[in-house]
Simulated assay, not measured.
Amino acid sequence: MALRARSQRRGIPLRAVLPNAITALALCSGLTGVRFAIAEDWERAVLMIMLAAALDGIDGQIARMMHGESKFGAELDSLSDAISFGVAPALILYLWSLMVVPRLGWIIALLFAVFCALRLARFNSQIDSEQPRKLAGYLTGIPAPAGAALAMLPLYVWLWSGEELARSPWIVTPWVAFVGLLMVSSLATYSWKSLRLRRNVRFEALVGLAILLAALVTAPWQTLTVVSVAYLVTLPFSVRAYRRSGRVASG
């Protein structure tokens, strides 16, 4: 009892607070994207979602580095993802395009947000169980940040081309529904956390990363378009690679 009382007086250690603060900041970034969308500031709306994705990518790394992992942090991360990569992109796309067909557009926006939540719920329910795909370096369905980024592909195209066809709800509606289905699908997709670079290509990888960052700064919308299309292209390869790995293991 005395040890418990002393630990409560000391409070929560900084190593547990910092990762959760970054997760909360990601949530705030996603919601701020909605605020910019209401003001029809589409560029900043997209940038806020991208910032949320970047913060989501580092909060877990920082938690592991500082030994600050916790069940609370995992739950907060899922709630943040549901809002930043499900609700916020759905509202941004609705305000940008889907509200032209309000009934159908709202249904699609709702489905995207719900599918994102379902994907995260499935992921959380499997954390404590053995996951053959995760052990093999794969995910089930596309992750929530990738889903948010892919869903906004027509918006990227519109921002750099000005082509109103990209804003058509008859294009955006099926596209958003398709990306939502990818999130809840059973497709085996690459897990970037499991990728390991060979020593002889690390320098080339750094050069490629520098080029990508430079492209994002100078031509963000064109670069996001290319990256989104490139990610889509990897999906058939990830499915085939996982099937091959299963055949090799069984053989």
Rank of each mutant, 00 (worst) to 15 (best):
L197E: 10
L232S: 00
L224D: 02
G208F: 07
V227I: 15
L197C: 06
A214F: 09
R202L: 06
A205R: 04
A230W: 10
A214Y: 08
G208K: 01
P220L: 01
S228D: 06
Y231R: 02
A205V: 10
V227C: 14
V233D: 11
S194V: 04
R202H: 05
T234L: 11
L224G: 01
R202T: 06
R199T: 15
L216N: 00
L212K: 01
R202Y: 06
Q222L: 14
L195A: 12
L213N: 02
L195N: 08
L213C: 11
G208S: 09
Y190A: 06
Y231V: 07
T218C: 12
T225R: 01
I211R: 05
L195D: 02
L232A: 03
V233L: 15
V227M: 14
A215G: 11
W192V: 13
W221K: 04
V201L: 12
E204A: 13
R199W: 14
P220G: 03
G208Q: 03
S191Q: 01
N200I: 09
G208A: 09
R199Y: 13
L224A: 11
A219N: 15
V227Q: 09
A230I: 04
A205G: 04
R198S: 14
L195H: 12
A215F: 11
A215R: 02
T225K: 01
W192C: 08
V233Y: 11
I211D: 00
V227N: 05
R199L: 15
